[in-house]
Design a protein around this nucleic acid. Structure first.
Lengths: 229, 229
DNA sequence: CTATCATGTTACTGACCGGTACGTTGCAGG
DNA sequence: CCTGCAACGTACCGGTCAGTAACATGATAG
C-alpha cells in the first residue's frame, strides 16, 4: 500500500538505435566544388529538408509533441531518409539545437559588436531585441530552455547541447559584468541570466503585453544598482 | 518542393474522451461522516493514490514523458480506476497543477505573513526560500512553468491552470511593488517576476551552484534601484 | 436475504511511437 | 551499353499511447 516504488527510475539518458552520422558539423556535405557552373539548383538534399522542417516544428510545438512521421510527411520524404542522416530522433533534436545555438550567438554577438568596449550597452541592446521578440504573438521562448524542460534526463543529447549553451552564456555574462566593474560581478552576471531566462519563459507564458517586454529596463536598473555598490 | 504545409496546424486545444468528473475541487468525496468511529483507516481511495503518484511523476519527469500506464502501475491500480476519477490524462495533469497551485500560494503567503506590512522583506523572504530550493540536487523548477512549456497549445487544461497562476502572481507582485512605493511599480513587479521565472528555469538547468541561488540578492538590488528613482 | 452502487478487475481497441529490413530508382564512370 | 553505388521508397516491426467495454467484488441499505 505504499507507492510500490520498486521500479527502477532513470535520470540519465541511455541511447537507442544505430550509431552513425550527424548533420550540423557534417563532414562532407556539399564539399568543395560540384563543377564550375553547377549551382543553378542542385536538388535540395532530403537531410536538409528534414532538418529545416524539424527546426520549425520542434521550436513551435515542442520536441516531444512532434513525431518523426509528421516530420518526414511535411518534408515530403520518408522515414528511412531521416534515419540515414540522423542516428535517432534525439540526435535530430540535438542537431536542431546546435543550429539554434549558432543563431543565438549570431544575435548575441551582433549586439556586442554594435557597442564595442561598452558591455552595459551591449547587454541592453541584446535585451531590447529579446524584449521585442517576446512580444511577437507566436513567440515560443528559447529553444534551448524549452528542450531542457522537456528532457530533464541527464545526458540526453538535446539537453547536453542546451546545457553547454547556457554555461557559455553564463560565463560571458559574468565576464561582461566584471568588465563593467561591478563589485560582485558573478552575482550581477547571474542576475542578468535570471532576467533573460525569465524573459524567455514569460514571453511564451503571458504573450503580448507580458512582463518580458520590460527585461531591458530591469536589466539596466539591476546593473545600475550593482555598479553603485 | 516547398514544404507542403497544406496540413492543418492546431494551436488551440481540442479535448478528447468523456466529459465527467474532476478531483481537486471534488464535489462529494469523503462527504461528511462515515460513522462516529470509522476512521482507523478507511482504505485510501484509488483516485487519491493516482493523483499522488501523478503529481510526483509529472513534476519530476514531465507530463508528456509519463504515460497513464506507468501512473496506474505505480499507484497499484488499473486504468479504468483512473478514467472513472479523471476525464482524461490532460485533466489529470490539470488536477496535478491545481494542487501545485494551492501549495504554491501556501509557500508564498507564508513568506508574506512572516513580514506584515513589509513587502520588500516579504519578497526577499520568499526568494530566499526559492533560492534554497533551487539548490537541491533533484530540483525540477516550477511545475506550472514546465507544464506551459510542454503544452504551448492555447486552451490546454494544464496550460489554463498554469496561466491563471502566473497572472495572479504577476498581479500580486505588481501590487507589492506599488506598496513599496516604487516609481514604476509595474516595471518592478514584472522585473521580480522575471527573476523568479529565471530562478525556476536556471535551477533545473544548472543544478547546484547555478545562478538561481543569487535570486534573492538580485531581487533586493533591483528593488533598491527601483525605489531610488 | 437481496438489490444497489461504487469501486475494483481483465482484456481489448485503433492510432501512433521510434526504428529497420529490403527492394527500387537514377545517375556516374567505364 | 552495362556496372556499381548511393539515395530514395515500400512495407513492416514490436511497443506504447490514451481510452473503453464488460464483468467481478464488496460494502451498505432496505
Amino acid at each position: 500500500m505504499l507507492l510500490t516504488g520498486t521500479l527502477q527510475e532513470r535520470d540519465t539518458y541511455v541511447p537507442t538505435g544505430n550509431i552513425v552520422n550527424q548533420l550540423i558539423g557534417r563532414p562532407g556535405m556539399k564539399s568543395i566544388e560540384p563543377t564550375i557552373k553547377a549551382n543553378d539548383a542542385p536538388p535540395p538534399r532530403a537531410a536538409e529538408r528534414i532538418l529545416q522542417v524539424a527546426r520549425d516544428l520542434f521550436y513551435r510545438q515542442g520536441i516531444r509533441a512532434i513525431g518523426v512521421d509528421e516530420i518526414v510527411r511535411r518534408a515530403g520524404v520518408t522515414k528511412p531518409s531521416l534515419y540515414r542522416s540522423f542516428p535517432s530522433k534525439d540526435e535530430l533534436a540535438a542537431s536542431y539545437l546546435r543550429h539554434y545555438d549558432l543563431e543565438f550567438w549570431e544575435r548575441f554577438d551582433e549586439a556586442v559588436n554594435a557597442h564595442p568596449g561598452d558591455p552595459r550597452a551591449q547587454i541592453v541592446a541584446f535585451l531590447t531585441r529579446v524584449g521585442k521578440r517576446t512580444q511577437r504573438p507566436d513567440y515560443r521562448g528559447c529553444g534551448m530552455t524549452n528542450a531542457a524542460v522537456e528532457y530533464p534526463e541527464h545526458g540526453h543529447p538535446a539537453r547536453v547541447v542546451s546545457e553547454a549553451n547556457k554555461q557559455e552564456l553564463r560565463r560571458r555574462l559574468r565576464a561582461m559584468a566584471a568588465e563593467m566593474g561591478a563589485g560582485d560581478a558573478d552575482t550581477l552576471g547571474d542576475g542578468l541570466l535570471l532576467l533573460i531566462e525569465g524573459a524567455y519563459i514569460s514571453g511564451q507564458l503571458f504573450g503580448v503585453g507580458g512582463p518580458a517586454k520590460s527585461v531591458a529596463r530591469n536589466a539596466d536598473l539591476l546593473i545600475e544598482a550593482s555598479l553603485k555598490k
